[in-house]
Design a protein around this nucleic acid. Structure first.
Length: 463
RNA sequence: GUCCCGUUCGUCUAGAGGCCUAGGACACCGGGUUUUCAUCCCGGCAACAGGGGUUCGACUCCCCUACGGGAUGCCA
């Protein structure tokens, strides 16, 4: 125990590249990253691509790229398990030499039959160790199994859950090497954690029951104990584990929609962890304030409305320049060059709260850059019965030389008062003419943003 | 089936036996500001899964039940 405390903390994120990086994975990576950083330790990434069937290079690149671009940069070059076969096999040999593993030639059919019988007898289906003392020689149909102690117990000390006990009698002799000679997940995992000097395993709670098995492998290899923290799972709105079926899970989808990286991280961190009454956290805050022991034990549903709100909070903290830089690609996406406007800064600043993500804001901005796609018919019906008012206003606006918010508003209210009209009777027709709808910043400001020429053109178009 | 983990407002959570008439945030509803919208401000609605203990006292400790999740693979 003392030894662990003295060592530099090393954590790792170990995804298998069988899909794009999803937000549950980002959260696991985030907690690993933050825990390492707050302990002046290292954060590592390991690609667990031993499942050759489902792993692809594309997914691997997606995961690695997204990870570093969102700010969770690993401290060392990620390693691939697929390239480390000899290391695992060497470890397996070491276990054989120590007498803690044996070859087993049970066929798949035999095993199935065994499980079937166990299930029917109301027992837990598990390998019964029938080949354990047979002294079977290695052949092309044998697997290598770990000889797990039959009695006693393993205690997993979890940073989040405390002590978790498992009776060894519940554990069967797991396979270390497949009949084709390739190592299995548990072996690779344990060996790599040792080889990478990992001290702390932070992963999803779906790995809790794997842990005692892995500890037995560690013991057979003479490796030191590790620290564990099993995170509660991120759930979909159906309370099931978050998957493509019940929600958008790909990190990329959220970024494309225009959510800030910092807001995504913030939302994920708040899933399972909190600190007093604070809601808004940046990565640096997390490194300072996060405490793994405070993490909740129950699974948490990922709620997009919380992301929406947090995103608006993070958006509000951006300087105008930062905001523009981030918004730019979203405007390009709908064919708009952000600088193609006479009054860019005023425009963007006025509309920065018009939605809570960049793609929504870009859409709000559309009529300020391009011709109005479609007019809100209901609004026209409601506010424009005849064109008299618009005609008058056109003339009035035409005569304003000092084209700014203040003087425009003044002219507008003078007209409104003199003709005994209500404000919406005057303002809404103009608004509709300019933007196609009844929503916009203050009308004087909106007119100023459009500029005299363009504003008048749009009004004329309505007549 | 067996083993393991879990269970506070719709959602994220605070709560480490009396501070709880269970607090905050999001969402929702209502009001104010802007006589548009958004922002912002104010207010409201709303929860300890159920049952037994232990205790002077239980959201907090113990047990049982229910429900949810995970494991039980020559997947990871």
């Amino acid at each position: 125990m003392e030894k662990i405390l003295m060592k530099q903390i090393v954590t790792r994120f170990a995804p298998s590249p069988t899909g794009t990086l999803h937000i549950g994975g980002v959260r696991t990576a985030l907690f690993n990253y933050v825990y390492a950083k707050q302990n002046n330790g290292k954060f590592l990434v390991r690609i667990e691509d031993t499942d050759r069937e489902r792993s692809t290079k594309e997914y691997e690149e997606n995961i690695l790229n997204n990870l570093s671009s969102i700010g969770l940069e690993p401290d060392e070059k990620p390693i691939n398990q697929s390239e480390r076969n000899e290391i695992y096999i060497k470890a397996a040999e070491k276990i054989i030499e120590s007498g803690n593993a044996y070859w087993c030639d049970c066929s798949q059919e035999e095993l199935e039959q065994m499980r079937k019988e166990q299930t029917e007898a109301g027992k837990k289906p598990m390998y019964d160790g029938r080949s354990r003392n047979l002294g079977i020689e290695r052949s092309e149909k044998t697997v290598l199994r770990l000889a797990t102690p039959e009695d006693g117990e393993i205690i997993v000390n979890d940073l989040i859950r405390g002590e978790i006990k498992f009776n060894n009698s519940e554990l069967d002799d797991l396979i270390l090497l497949r009949s084709d000679g390739t190592p299995t997940y548990h072996l690779c995992n344990v060996v790599d954690d040792f080889e990478q000097n990992v001290t702390t395993v932070i992963r999803g709670e779906d790995h809790i029951s794997n842990t005692p098995r892995q500890i037995h492998i560690q013991k057979a290899l003479g490796y030191p104990d590790l620290e564990y923290a099993h995170l509660p799972l991120v759930l979909g709105t159906d309370k099931k584990r978050l998957s493509k079926r019940n929600a958008a899970t790909s990190l990329e989808d959220y970024r494309k929609k225009g959510y800030l990286d910092s807001a995504i991280l913030n939302t994920l961190a708040r899933l399972g962890w909190s600190q007093g009454e604070n809601e808004v956290f940046f990565l640096n805050d997390l490194i300072k304030d996060f405490n793994i022991k405070e993490v909740q034990k129950a699974g948490a549903i990922f709620d997009i409305t919380k992301l929406d709100w947090l995103n608006s909070q993070h958006l509000a903290k951006l300087t105008l320049q930062e905001f523009k830089d981030s918004l730019k690609p979203f405007l390009e996406e709908i064919g708009i060059d952000i600088n193609n406007h006479n009054n860019v800064d005023l425009l963007i600043d006025s509309l920065r709260t018009s939605d809570n993500n960049f793609s929504g804001i870009a859409n709000q901005l559309y009529p300020y850059y391009k011709d109005i796609k479609e007019y809100d018919d209901n609004a026209i019906k409601k506010f424009i019965s005849d064109n008299d008012i618009l005609h008058d206003l056109k003339d009035i606006l035409q005569n304003i030389d000092d084209w700014n918010e203040e003087s425009i508003n003044k002219a507008l209210s003078t007209y409104q008062e003199q003709n005994n009209l209500k404000v919406p009777q005057v303002n809404q027709p103009v608004r509709i003419a300019l933007t196609g709808k009844t929503k916009s910043p203050g009308l004087g400001l909106t007119l100023e943003i459009f500029g005299k020429e363009k504003a008048l053109k749009r009004i004329e178009k309505m007549l």
